[in-house]
Design a binder for these strands. Sequence first.
DNA 1: TCTGGGGTCCTAGGACCC
DNA 2: TCTGGGGTCCTAGGACCC
Length: 412
Amino acid sequence: MSRQDGSHRRVSDPAHDDGTATILHIDMDAFFASVELLARPELVGRPVIVAHDGPRSIVTTATYEARRHGVHSAMPLAQARRLCPRAVVIEPHHERYGHASRTVMAILGRFTPLIEQVSVDEAFLDVSGATRLFGAAGAIGARIRAEVRVETGLVCSVGAATTKFVAKLASGMAKPDGLLVVNRDETRALLDPLPIGALPGVGARTQERLRGLGLVTVADVRTTAPQTITRVVGDAAGRRLIDLAHGRDRRAVTPRREEKSIGHERTFPADLDPVADADQLRAALLDLAERTCARARRHGVLGRTVAIKVRDAAFHTVTRSQTLVAPTQTGRTVFTTAWRLYEQSGMADRPVRLIGVRLEQLTGDVAGALWSDDVEWQATDRAVDAVAERFGAGAVRPARLLRGGDAAAGAR
DNA sequence: TCTGGGGTCCTAGGACCC
DNA sequence: TCTGGGGTCCTAGGACCC
């Protein structure tokens, strides 16, 4: 293994890279926070937290200065503030992240078309066909890091290995601002001592269950009888875990994956009373349905199943879904279905903390929509989309949302 | 400490069909 | 009259990831 670490200006040893690593994982460091610092350079070196500032917010990203105080992603903002009172909290700007992300992905595209973007700040590259032009994976990783830094002012870490899983592991170990190449014959030695939580798919629950079997490290998983493991974590998960523990991971880098569902959800700043705040609740659900469908239309997909999610004051969460006779991308239809599901959910008499809508079973078959009974709304939706395109989303909104006014808008 | 919002995948039971 | 097994679809919930 060879590590290039920005802070020490150590250059990775090209002789170490034996060419067996052909998959790269690129992961931006503290992405949202770093993008914000580009616009606020005076904050560089200070603890910075990116979070929407609400009573129930969580930390989206924190700079390493803030992380040193124990702040991390998904932590309640209130707690983060206690841990690091001096931290500057910045409101997220998703358009900026999207823009930076596209710039980074374009840089990656110079090396291979085989790019699988996992999220705004993360991607896998299969460079097996690019080494003749650009050298081994380690060399490509180093170039990517340099070009990203020069052209965006942002820092990323890169892992290279023979499989996706190990490449991702390597980028994580290289952080911050590093590069790590793991050759094939180094894989087992790297994996064996790691805690089982390092395996993708092993979260808190699974870790607990495996610990109940006395399994602590990846080596433990590798050397345990498969049935023992599948018995506690299920068939599919168990088999995958064992494979990963052996360093086996046949998942290919797949450039475009089709989306399976689209949805929106909202947590209210304070719980809504099902009776007194019924209008607000309806307005919120309609807004979520409209936004979900606007996105579906933009993506050219329809959903056959409408699903809702309701979370009560006690954080108890329930989902309900209904499959329609014909797929839809019409806000009105999704809203009516969703509202009915809510009323029948058994949650309709309790204070609501969160409500959400999701379109599932997506199909690109627009012809299917001709059979649906919401034809008359389709023209309206198209008109709304056209105005939104010219004047920005929110220029046209259903009357119900205006009436309830800024209660609904303010909940965002 | 008090828990966001966007998703994916898996499991399990029941309905229904052959 | 009671009882198969397999396959597919639908629904609910849970775990997990970024």
